[in-house]
Simulated scan of single mutants.
Amino acid sequence: MPETLAERYAGVVCDLDGVVRRGAQAVPYAVDRLLALRVPIVYATNNASLTPQDVANQLLGLGLRVGPTNVVTSSQAGAAYVASLFPPDSPVLAVGGPGVAAALAEAGLRPVDQAEPGVVAVLQGYGADVTAALLAEASYAIEDGATWVATNRDATLPTHRGIAPGNGALIGAVAVATGVQPSAATGKPEAPLYHLSVTRLGVPKTDVLAIGDRLDTDILGAMNAGLDSLWVLTGVDDLVSFARSAGRPVPTYAARDLRALDRPPMVPSVRGQTLRCGSVSLSVDWASGVLRVTDGDDPDALVAATTAALVHGRDVAGASVDALVRLAETAAARLG
């Protein structure tokens, strides 16, 4: 039997929202495919407000076998970074939800909630209950010389009611007050969250596959950390959004969903205007974006081939954005 994509790797770093779950519901096929993996998995999240145990409890509710050691948060990555700069038990102002303070304590630092004398750093992450008073404490500490580290810069936060301000928006409030920006950020798309995840897996990064749905966080973060990646179309980004944004990150593999883990890796080949992947053959007019699928009816192969076509059209053939969008819309319509 040919080697499957899952069998090619010794460890997996998996995003949560858009890959494993949508809100409180599991993404179709995700739980079964993740349970079938025979390699260690770390679930990496930019959500700084929750503790790893909180996240593990949510995943247990979906039917996954997971404990807090299988979860890595941007708060933990931020706390590890701060701990690399200062001695144990150094006071650090914790701004955000419970996950921020818990991560600092786990890293051997002393979380505080006021800009008391001697505070060496501010670790700022998202928290639904962050107040103007706490943001003011962050400003005071930063003005007094504390190192400012952000767990992530996500400007917005999708909720069941719509789009809410994310940690990046709260960072902006402190930046306006202080006139400075955080000295570092540790969540996706920065590399520290992935580096910590690879350390937790205990395997070489060349043997790790990162899975995500967002190109500008999950896939770019994997690239920044030097990891192979699988982009799935079950969350935020799709083929059309890939086409619309110039310079998007390039995933190693692309597929509809996590069922791709059970299949041999989809690796397209490009020859001029023709792209082949598995049983699928695409013919593309780079000037107009007209796409013809001349052979095969394999949705995963179509996603992989179209993704490769968009990259080639953008980076090699010099296709216009309008042409790339037309190509992506044609493929998306065929996928249904």
Rank of each mutant, 00 (worst) to 15 (best):
V42P: 05
G289F: 13
P87H: 08
Q181D: 11
V208T: 04
P28F: 02
T217G: 05
G318C: 02
V236Y: 09
S279Y: 00
P264N: 03
D228V: 04
A141R: 07
V95T: 03
V236D: 00
A141T: 02
D257F: 04
S288K: 11
D207M: 11
P28H: 07
A328I: 10
Q25S: 15
P204N: 13
I219Y: 12
G166F: 14
W286D: 08
K188D: 06
A133F: 06
D262Q: 06
R314V: 00
T178R: 09
S84Y: 01
L109R: 06
T294M: 01
D238T: 08
G125F: 03
R153T: 15
V325H: 11
A133V: 05
P299Q: 07
D218Y: 05
L170C: 13
D315R: 15
I219M: 06
V13A: 12
P182A: 11
G96T: 02
P158D: 08
T4W: 06
G162F: 09
V12H: 14
N46I: 06
A308F: 12
S320C: 04
L93I: 00
P299T: 10
V71Q: 01
A10C: 07
P68W: 01
G172E: 10
T234V: 08
A304V: 08
A56W: 06
L37T: 04
G145M: 09
A44P: 10
L123A: 06
A246D: 10
C277G: 12
V280W: 03
A56R: 07
N167Q: 11
L37F: 07
A44Q: 06
P165S: 10
G212H: 04
S84N: 07
L93D: 02
G336W: 05
A121D: 04
T234R: 10
L275I: 14
V174L: 12
G278W: 13
L201I: 03
G272N: 01
A319C: 07
D298T: 13
G18M: 10
N152H: 15
V42L: 03
Q58C: 03
L215N: 05
R33A: 03
G23H: 12
V82K: 06
L230W: 00
D297Y: 02
A304S: 15
V122S: 03
N70G: 14
K205R: 15
A177R: 10
G168A: 14
G172H: 13
G221R: 08
F242K: 13
V232K: 04
Y9E: 11
P264C: 00
L37G: 05
Q53N: 10
L282E: 10
A319R: 09
D17F: 12
S74G: 07
A331K: 06
L104E: 02
L220Q: 15
G166C: 13
D237N: 13
A128S: 14
V311N: 08
E137R: 02
G179D: 05
P2I: 01
R271F: 01
L59P: 09
G318R: 09
D295L: 02
V72Y: 07
T45F: 03
P299N: 04
A155R: 15
R334N: 04
R65N: 08
A177N: 08
G296E: 01
